[in-house]
Nucleic acid binder design. Structure first.
Lengths: 232, 232
DNA sequence: CGTCTTATGTGACCGCAATCACCCCGTTTT
DNA sequence: AAAACGGGGTGATTGCGGTCACATAAGACG
């Protein structure tokens, strides 16, 4: 499929670039659909591409020495991943997998490097992204320290609430991760996640609406659980 | 205390700089001793300094919502920390604490920024350092996925073995972290770490030599445990 | 020197989440 | 339409590591 400048313009990182530049980049880029569970980036390889997520949800995953899956972070539409090679040319440390059918725009590493030379102001955004990633990982790690499992799940759920809905009473989480995908993020078993969700549903705090929508009815209460102000 | 150019030159990041430049930086920098448990960098604040560790050992630590300590990474002599503000000007995400009495050289953020303008080639090293940090955190996260606790401890211990000793039969770990400090890195209790160490000592794999030295007698065996090839 | 503090060592107990085994249900595949 | 699959739901069991409560050892320090 063809990458259009309009498509590239939808990504915050690139939205400020002149049309002509975007046209050039578009010519070197590619767009692909990734099926559920498809590998977008491989660990341990020099992937040499920056992946922009247009639609869907991705997850960074790693594996322990004994083969268990470990969830690292989620990638939401508009964000990108695989940018670590811009910093040290090294290999991709973790796998990136599509959790839902996704649309991904890939810009090759060297196109990206050329672009950065022409527009060094983009460096600030990319640096900020990496810095943000470090902060996110730090926070995620601190989640694992919580002895209360339900609180862990609520924190993770809270992070999936769209920014714009955090102050509202009700929120929607589109394409929510499966229980398994949440479980590996939090180092707990799938069954335990299910049981916490049951508990939340019984209290009418969340509600499933089909397979691709999770409604948070009482955003404030969820937040309370996440912050440990109330026990589930 | 006064920072000399010679002191700065001991740090890999700065060792390639001309003497005159180092003199300039030295004038703006400061060196301090941090006692055991002293806070070197505060979380949530704009610390605006890059800290180079000359001697000792530091640990990045965070706290969960309910106040538990979480260990994030260790800083070894020659390395630096607090560099995240170079990337987004944001606050320091985690605390950095001295585990042993340490000597730390601090370069203010704006001196560092000026230096980077004059010597953009340093960017590569700093970028690589951040990239390395991301890789380290990813690995550390995958450690937490290990269901076998003893293996986790052995992995952590293996990472403390100096690079130069990894192929040898015997290795020394100077200023080893306490059991508690290892425990918070691995999300396990202090007692459990103690029990694993007992087990390792009984099998003559490690040996304490005073308070500031841990001798690994059988490096290969430790590695075997770390990689899950043998069960402890 | 004795006193304080911090680190380590160890047993007993117990609670909680992992595991296992199975169910249901909706979707996709054949 | 049947079969296969993946996701979610649930009970019973159990083992492992957390917690608690001490004991002991080793420095730190006046």
């Amino acid at each position: 499929m063809v990458v259009t400048p309009q498509l590239l313009k939808t990504f915050p990182l690139l939205s400020g670039l002149p049309y002509a530049t975007l046209e050039g980049i578009a010519g070197q880029s590619s767009v692909r659909r990734a099926a559920r569970r498809a590998i977008v980036l491989n660990a341990g390889q020099n992937e040499e591409q920056i992946c922009f997520l247009f639609e869907g949800r991705l997850q960074g995953v790693d594996f322990t020495i004994d083969g268990r899956e470990v969830g690292l972070y989620f990638v939401e539409p508009g964000e990108f991943c695989g940018e670590l090679c811009l910093f040290d040319g090294g290999a991709q440390p973790e796998f990136v997998m599509a959790l839902t059918p996704s649309v991904i725009v890939s810009i090759p590493l060297n196109s990206m490097q050329t672009l950065l030379k022409m527009h060094p102001e983009l460096f600030a955004t990319i640096s900020a992204k990496i810095a943000g990633h470090v902060r996110k990982m730090t926070f995620q790690r601190s989640l694992l320290g919580l002895p209360n499992i339900a609180q862990r799940v609520c924190c993770q759920l809270w992070m999936l609430v769209p920014e714009k809905d955090k102050e509202k009473e009700e929120a929607q989480i589109r394409n929510p991760p499966t229980h398994m995908e949440i479980a590996i993020m939090l180092n707990i078993s799938r069954e335990t996640v299910t049981r916490v969700f049951q508990s939340l549903q019984n209290r009418q705090i969340v509600k499933r609406d089909g397979t691709s929508l999770l409604v948070v009815n009482k955003v404030g209460v969820l937040r309370g659980y996440a912050e440990g102000k109330q026990e589930l």
